[in-house]
């Protein structure tokens, strides 16, 4: 089976990033992952056609960002009055209430960080496919890695579910188009991160010249 990943390399030495054990890098196919034999950390995974799929999914995600953020997610109707919630106006309302630190954090985790992640992924994968300059792609990879755990679409989704169940006895709740696009965005963004092969992106940036570490025994 041909894979989109780099061809089998000569024996390279690597170290586990969680327990520092020296290891020989093994070649893994698209369905397996390399784990550290001592501490069990996942060292790397290889994905088939990783960069093409990442580019497609991240661009799709970016298209969904605007409707997911501005269309109504939930509408509450109670005694003839109704109120609509979008991702943006929840944050706006909290800021008006004086909770600027919390609203900044919610804004960062539910909107800013995931969008930057998608932008970085499309930049990295496009850079890989069209051979763009190394420095910019390396910077994008670092930004992506630092923001990785701060993008919280999945947590936000659970938050929507909980508010839905909490409020369903209070009045009539109507899910909006924003909710549908948000679910689509969540699926696309999660798939995009899962399909992205970090090691492959970093490997292209290596100069590969005479900097392979040799292991001194003794």
């Amino acid at each position: 089976m041909s894979t989109g990943s780099n061809s089998p390399q000569p024996v390279t030495v690597t170290a586990c990033h969680e327990c520092d054990l020296l290891l020989q890098a093994a070649n893994v196919d698209g369905r397996h992952k390399a784990c550290c034999p001592r501490c069990g950390a996942v060292l790397y995974t290889t994905r088939v056609n990783s960069m093409e799929r990442t580019l497609a999914l991240s661009l799709t995600g970016l298209l969904l960002v605007i409707p997911a953020n501005t269309l109504p997610i939930l509408t509450l109707e109670l005694l003839g009055q109704s109120n609509t919630n979008t991702m943006i106006n929840g944050i706006y309302q909290m800021t008006l209430g004086g909770y600027w630190w919390m609203s900044a954090l919610v804004f960062f985790c539910s909107i800013l960080a995931p969008i930057i992640k998608l932008l970085m992924l499309s930049f990295i994968s496009a850079g890989y496919l069209y051979n763009w300059s190394h420095a910019g792609v390396a910077k994008a990879l670092k930004i992506y890695q630092n923001l990785d755990e701060w993008g919280m679409f999945d947590v936000y989704m659970l938050g929507i579910l909980i508010s839905f169940i909490k409020m369903k006895d209070m009045g009539t709740l109507i899910p909006g188009l924003g909710l549908a696009t948000f679910v689509a965005l969540l699926v696309v963004a999660t798939a995009c991160s899962a399909v992205f092969d970090k090691e492959q992106a970093w490997a292209r940036l290596g100069t590969g010249s005479a900097d392979k570490p040799e292991v001194k025994h003794g």
Binding site: N83, N85, Q93
Partner: peptide
């Protein structure tokens, strides 16, 4: 925190 941010806008009647 996400739940609170959502409820604050939703329940403002």
């Amino acid at each position: 925190l996400f739940v609170i941010a959502m409820l604050v806008t939703l329940v403002d009647l």
